[in-house]
Write a protein that binds this DNA or RNA. Structure first.
Lengths: 138, 138
DNA sequence: CTTGACCCGGTACCTCGGTACGGGGTCGAT
DNA sequence: ATCGACCCCGTACCGAGGTACCGGGTCAAG
């Protein structure tokens, strides 16, 4: 598949493919005799994964690690497991925070018929604020 | 509370406070007679919320909307509910994706003793891959 | 065999979200 | 009264993640 088609299907700019290739996120595809890149279909899945992972708050560097894990991870089982478990902890923290936010917004929906000041929306308290150096008064 | 203390407690740079103030994310605090900003304790919570929301993939513009909701949302109940529900849908999509990712990494941990090619890690398939209508840019 | 759409590499430029710098005023402990 | 730490505003600069532009080659339908 050529650059333009891959970019279209993944919903990204063509230049982005070349940028990711430079960054090492996207493997260099084989070339046609005239130098055109010829991508495997899986490239589209990789691109979509990258874009979605970004929307979930991962940097490209983190995405790179995740892609390595998607490929089976480090040769050593210990290393692979350790890396995966680190990411699992992070994922669970994100999930917990998002669920708290959802709950807060749900409460707002349930109380929005009240005047604004009387509505319930604890969004600010929804996120796990690890490392509170001092007690925050709210 | 003065700028430096707020910044310290929230774990951000002082310049960031002023930047958020310019962006309208952080309300302009009252000033001392000599012009020093005097923040309420709640400013720290706002800052922490902003930073965490960013790690969850929200842009500052989205965070601004969330902060409005945290404050009770639009005066109209219909408008408030609609805005909140839109965000709830988004949150649920994020949660679902993160849970899929967690499951994939869990499977990797369970199979990492196998040779790499035989390990299970469907990370690439983990994310809901409806074609994005608009691109992420950050 | 031409014409429009597409691809190449290289380099310049853009947005977002900050962060640093500079020149000057203020606070409070000594 | 002075000195270090802190604050003010304005403006310049930075890193991440792209995006655009250029001059040139390629492909395929007419």
């Amino acid at each position: 598949m050529r650059t333009g088609e891959v970019a279209d299907r993944a919903g990204v700019n063509i230049q982005t493919l070349r940028y990711y290739e430079r960054r090492g996120l996207l493997a260099e595809p084989p070339r046609s005799p005239t130098g055109y890149r010829d991508y495997p279909g899986s490239a589209v899945a990789v691109l979509r994964f990258v874009k979605r992972a970004q929307e979930l708050g991962f940097t490209l560097t983190e995405v790179e690690e995740l892609l390595e894990l998607a490929d089976g991870g480090p040769a050593s089982c210990d290393a692979a497991r350790h890396l995966a478990e680190t990411h699992i902890v992070e994922l669970e923290r994100k999930i917990a925070d998002l669920e708290q936010m959802r709950a807060s917004l749900g409460a707002l929906v349930a109380t929005c018929q009240r005047p604004r000041a009387a509505r319930t929306c604890a969004l600010l308290d929804a996120l796990s604020d690890d490392v509170p150096l001092t007690q925050v008064q709210r």
